[in-house]
Simulated scan of single mutants.
Amino acid sequence: MWRDIGLGDWLFDFDNEGDVRRLPSAVLAMDTNPVESIANAAKARQYVHQRPREAWND
């Protein structure tokens, strides 16, 4: 679902060594670019709120 709402870069499978290794850099990127991170989260939130309305009207 994280990929579906546009947050695939923030999806981590802790059973996957590659995902575990990229976690620190992803967290640092969120901290370094808070405006972008907040915008990404807001966009995903908007999608999550809008999608049921669209499905209901289909």
Rank of each mutant, 00 (worst) to 15 (best):
D58Q: 15
N40A: 14
M1D: 14
R51D: 03
V27F: 07
E17Q: 10
A29T: 07
W10R: 14
V20N: 08
E36I: 06
D9H: 10
L7H: 00
S37I: 02
L23C: 06
L28D: 11
D31W: 12
V35S: 04
D19I: 06
R21V: 03
W2I: 03
S37Y: 03
R45D: 05
I5W: 09
N33Y: 02
L28C: 05
R22I: 07
N33V: 03
N16M: 12
F12V: 06
L7G: 00
L23V: 11
V20R: 08
W56M: 14
D13Y: 05
L23Y: 11
D31V: 12
A26N: 03
Q50T: 13
K43P: 01
D31C: 12
I5T: 01
P52Y: 01
S25W: 09
V48M: 10
V20D: 02
N16K: 11
R45V: 09
R21G: 04
T32M: 07
D19Q: 07
M1K: 15
V27S: 04
I38M: 11
P34A: 01
A41K: 08
Y47H: 13
R3Q: 10
V20C: 09
G8K: 05
R21W: 08
A55H: 07
E54V: 02
R3G: 14
V20A: 13
W2V: 02
Q46H: 11
L28Q: 15
P52T: 00
V35L: 07
G18Q: 11
P34I: 04
A39D: 10
R51I: 05
D19N: 08
I5R: 03
L7C: 06
I5V: 15
F14H: 05
N57C: 09
S37K: 09
V35P: 00
G6R: 03
Y47A: 11
Y47E: 02
